[in-house]
Design a binder for these strands. Sequence first.
DNA 1: ATTATATATTCTGAATATTGAATAACCTAA
DNA 2: TTAGGTTATTCAATATTCAGAATATATAAT
Lengths: 138, 138
Amino acid sequence: MDGYEWQGSLMKALAHPARLQILEVLRSDGECCVCHIENIMGQRQAYISQQLSRLREAGLVVDRREGLNVFYSLVDESISQLLEVTRQSATDLASFNGVQLSFRQLEHEESCPCTCPNCGVQDEAHAGRTSQELSQVT
Amino acid sequence: MDGYEWQGSLMKALAHPARLQILEVLRSDGECCVCHIENIMGQRQAYISQQLSRLREAGLVVDRREGLNVFYSLVDESISQLLEVTRQSATDLASFNGVQLSFRQLEHEESCPCTCPNCGVQDEAHAGRTSQELSQVT
DNA sequence: ATTATATATTCTGAATATTGAATAACCTAA
DNA sequence: TTAGGTTATTCAATATTCAGAATATATAAT
């Protein structure tokens, strides 16, 4: 199968700021439910779900249902590297053009009514992943 | 300026098989003229020029005129790494789905009538870049 | 059953991307 | 100047993507 076609499809899946930000949330917070992403990004539920659908079809994320919640995570650690390298390239190219980029890390809103294990602790400083999950990344 | 927007634009510039292949030609053969790319890829001149225009606007390539010919090259070595990593990710994801990708390396046709220094030696086995240019890559 | 919560899908018009065809612009030589 | 070779742009038809609105689905509790 044509590699350039496939590679292009992968790039297309990444070619949207909302999808990049979702992937970044999954990368930094680890597996999380839709309402968590929705809350962090401050976007409508249907919108997030649409973008997650694109990422799922592209094979970049996997989902797992647990009761009412559906948890998403990166399909593979290599996606993290892909995100890092592309972000670095974007930063370099922007800097070359005299532009400085800011990748704002949005915080979890206190008002999230979701009861999933990830969002349930949202009153704490940062309800990220466990240290075990963190060690897998590094 | 929003980093995710910028990163998305970069991905969008890469989200096309013809553009990826052009970049690959520039990466492996170094600086080359439009007719060289046109010849290798077997596409119409206007089509190549359009795609080059997109890459130029995205800041991925630079052009330099020399007489009748315009020579294009990657703006920076970091683009090479970007191509490598994204290709590897595409290969991994495809393999994960039981698909094997082939990135065919098209050869320069003998019939190129162009007289630019790069294409002028097209009757030889491979009229790539000089060893000096090659060492800069590694 | 009904209700509530979390998530997914479908439909739509607007915006943007793709690509062939035609043509314009640029440079050199005579 | 004209002619010829190389590259760029414009136009138009088609296809795709974007993002809001509405609705559908899945699960749990009552």
